[in-house]
């Protein structure tokens, strides 16, 4: 192979073939699907994120949650995701149209979070879990996110969103532990994760 021109042409064409087939075709085929309105409930599907949850999406990215938690539910033929209760149905392309960046993930060091807002719908639980995961999930290897919380002196009335912590985590008397805006946003995002609505291409029953 001594002809540089044919070498360069081949290198160019093989790559172009893959780029068109694996990137451009998907982009035009299903990269522009839209949300839709449910006939039953009049709800927009997937429901758009609130401003606070959108901010929480950024916090999720900054802490690198995606390295241990996936957000995709596989169908019945691929693993036990449905049987484990990680979703009512497999997730499909339309579920992610608002996600920038996507958090599909490739590891399940921790459980899948596609529907965590439905499985654990209490903000209190999420705050306790983020502050000290092992108190609510014994044996967990998730790191604590104490840096998302502030210890501060109670001035006047105790804060309404102070954490109710027991044992060694409890703040000294006269002090309280409150979530930072980042922690509140993150929990709002986690609570918004509920992909249990039915879609035409992914019915729930």
């Amino acid at each position: 192979m001594n002809r540089a021109a044919s070498l360069f042409l081949g290198i160019f064409l093989t790559f172009t073939f893959a780029w068109v087939g694996l990137v451009l075709v998907p982009y035009f085929q299903f990269g522009r699907v839209t949300d839709l309105v449910s006939e039953d409930t009049g709800q927009t599907l997937p429901p758009p994120l609130s401003g606070l949850a959108q901010r929480g999406h950024e916090v999720y990215a900054a802490q690198g949650c995606v390295y241990c938690h996936s957000q995709q539910v596989r169908g019945e033929t691929q693993g036990s995701d449905l049987a484990r209760g990680w979703g009512a149905r497999r997730t499909v392309a339309r579920d992610y149209i608002g996600e920038r960046p996507h958090f599909l993930g490739t590891m399940r060091t921790g459980p899948d979070l596609s529907n965590i807002g439905r499985r654990q719908s209490s903000a209190e639980w999420h705050h306790k879990h983020l502050y000290h995961p092992q108190t609510v999930s014994p044996g967990s290897i998730m790191p604590a996110f104490r840096y998302l919380y502030t210890l501060r002196k109670i001035a006047g009335e105790p804060s309404a969103d102070a954490l109710h912590l027991d044992g060694a985590d409890a703040p000294p008397p006269g002090w309280e532990i409150v979530p930072t805006p980042d922690a509140k946003a993150l929990v709002a995002y986690l609570l918004s994760l509920d992909r249990s609505y039915a879609l035409p291409e992914a019915p729930t029953d």
Binding site: R84, G85, G87, A88, R119, P138, S196
Partner: peptide
């Protein structure tokens, strides 16, 4: 049940001891 309850009470219905 599997989608809503099993993450705490488990598919086996036995929950998690102590939790």
């Amino acid at each position: 049940y599997v989608a809503n309850c099993a993450s705490c009470h488990q598919v086996t219905g036995l929950g998690q001891p102590g939790v």
